[in-house]
Amino acid sequence: MIGASLFPTVGDSEERANQLILWLLDNIIWPIVLLAFVIFSVLLPGVFSSAQNIQFLLFSSAALGMLVLAESLCLLSGNFDLSIGSIAGFSAMFTALFLHEWFPGMPGEVGILVILLVGATIGLGNGVAIGYFGINPFLQTLAFFIIFRGAITILSSLSVAPLPGAYTFLGGSTIATIPGLGDLGPLSNVPVAILVLLALYAIAWYVLNYTRFGLAVYAVGGDATSAKEAGIPTERVIVAVFVISGALSALSGLLFTGYLRAATPTLARGDLFPAFAAAVIGGISLFGGRGDVKNAFGGLMLISMIQIGLVQLGVDAEQIQFVNGIVLLGAIYLYAIESRLRARVLSE
């Protein structure tokens, strides 16, 4: 260059080191997942690390995984959604009644469309209220959390079953039942839900990192005013985020229904907290614009491993809650340290 740059950059090795530390802290979930896996494998030799157990781990995380994804998306956009579990439960019960009582004989494929539509519509309600009318997301989604949990008991106080095979297929079948796939040997016992889980995280990661919509979600979550001034239609982005969140919650309801082979009145009740915890443990910031869904997947794996590992160790459910709480607190402190470090690096 001719002459020194008039906007001097401070690109020295110390800064590089700091950025490396921040990057490591951003992705800290994976060493933790690995550590937890090793610990449980040692405590439960020959059991925990078996292929069958890993398959069960993924299978039983699939439905919760959709809620984690729904919550992560909302958090990244600078919002949050307390209604995801209620949407999962309500859409599952509504659609089960639709298939079982209101329109018996309706093909299960129609049920899949119905459940996604119900979830997306409820999400639209959240999105319009928050994006266009400026309602506080906490209050809006708290109201929907209560309303739709209550609406389930108005619909039915009993479990609804049986449901068409095509409807429970995604949540409850193995890939051997996919027509025309032939003999897959040992893989044929892999549940379809695992494929759904992996595929949706892959798609979400791609969309968030490689599409204009994904970039807009990060921008709105990072700084909504700046995003708007830069020409991002922030209201529409927020509506889209909640519609997708609603549809993912409904997909969770569909997977739970297949897993349980019935729509139960308590379906996905109490899953809001673990979904939230998994996203936060996976480094999705509560303040928006920071985080990565692949790490939220790590958070999901950690929560699920603790759940399954402790059950296999004979720990009872109440005590598992205690451990979950400790893990969440640990994660919160860890990310608090990270943001302090970030602030220190930034102020240099």
């Binding site: 970039l215 990060y218 921008a219 990072g222 700046s226 001034e229 830069a230 020409g231 991002i232 614009g289």
Partner: peptide, 23 residues
């Protein structure tokens, strides 16, 4: 427009900011 408050999103990269809304 160059806004007085700059309208940058701190959490995004330089390039992402420059092309925000016209990626």
């Amino acid at each position: 427009t160059v806004y007085q408050d700059l309208a940058l999103v701190d959490t995004l990269s330089v390039a992402a900011n420059m092309f925000l809304g016209r990626t």
